[in-house]
Computed example of a mutant assay.
Amino acid sequence: MKVVAIDLDGTLLSEDLTIHEENVRAIREAQQQGSIISIATGRALFDAQNIIEKYGLNCPIIASNGAQIYVDNKKIDEQFMDPHITQPIIQWLNEENTYYQPYLSDKIVVSDRGIHHLEEELHEVVKQDPSFNKDHFWESIKVTIEQNGLQEVRGTIHPTDYDSIVKLMVVSPDTSKLKRAKEYFNQLGGCVVSSSGEFNLEIMSVGVDKGIGLHKLCDYYGTTVKNTVVIGDNLNDMPMFHVAGMGIAMGNAEEELIKIATFKTLSNNECGVAYAFNKYIQENEMVSSGLTGR
């Protein structure tokens, strides 16, 4: 039994946030041949479910960068952050007037002041660097600020408002602030900090990442991560690439990911997932079974 874990944004999803029919067809064909095709995403579980159900797909899901694992129509694992860690993080973000989203089991919340904070930061960034591309910034974070399940709350989110936080998403056009934030959060201990884009940070409980989530999924199916293939494009996919038997980087992937990948496929706008199935996954299986004559 082969497990294939596929990232969503920048991988299975094209730039217009749709899944091309060629990719859908490749997933269904692989499922029909007995492979377990999983989605592995930084998105919340309910958001990922909403996306794949639009295309009639039924897949196990590693969500929130491994904090949530959903198999056979049930949640088999969910890891919450320690409030002793989330509280100082939220306090710091509030003091810095930074846009952030606490991910909960059933929704994602954001202050109704969040967009205002982004606009103020962007104004300062452009003042310091007039060449900064504002349109690129807004396009880059569009997925985050418009995602399914996002609910605005009035005023400031207080550190003690939520006890059961799955993940914290932080967004800023100020990359130096993101660097400072990452350094501070890492000093707290008890959490891991990753990224799925140029202008964000993703904070989860220690012991949570996509690679660990892949281990848990394989345990459920009675197989090992060495028998897995992963396809992704960004830094939060790296833990999977470090443990999987084969790592396939998208043509649009971060250079750090490409360096550790087994293969590089086409971009997300060129049906790179389908190409990976046809060019690398199926061909590798034929070689392993001796069907190619090599």
Rank of each mutant, 00 (worst) to 15 (best):
D129Y: 11
R113N: 12
K226G: 10
R180I: 02
P159Q: 00
S172V: 09
I203K: 01
I90G: 04
S111A: 03
E29G: 11
P130H: 04
Y162K: 05
K210F: 14
S105H: 14
K182E: 07
F241W: 05
E53C: 11
Q91R: 11
P88K: 02
H158L: 06
D47V: 13
V4E: 14
V287F: 06
K264A: 09
S164K: 09
S64G: 10
N148G: 07
D7H: 05
N186Q: 12
Y162I: 03
S64L: 04
I61K: 02
D7G: 02
N268K: 07
Y184E: 05
S140C: 01
D7S: 01
L291P: 02
G149M: 10
Q282E: 14
Q31A: 03
A30Q: 07
P159I: 01
E121V: 02
D233F: 13
N58H: 09
F241P: 03
E256S: 15
T86P: 15
G42V: 00
I281G: 12
N186C: 06
L214H: 00
S289R: 06
S38I: 11
E22H: 01
G34F: 00
L93R: 01
R180C: 15
Q87K: 11
G245T: 07
P60R: 02
N252M: 12
I141W: 14
A249L: 04
V153I: 11
E139Y: 10
V153E: 09
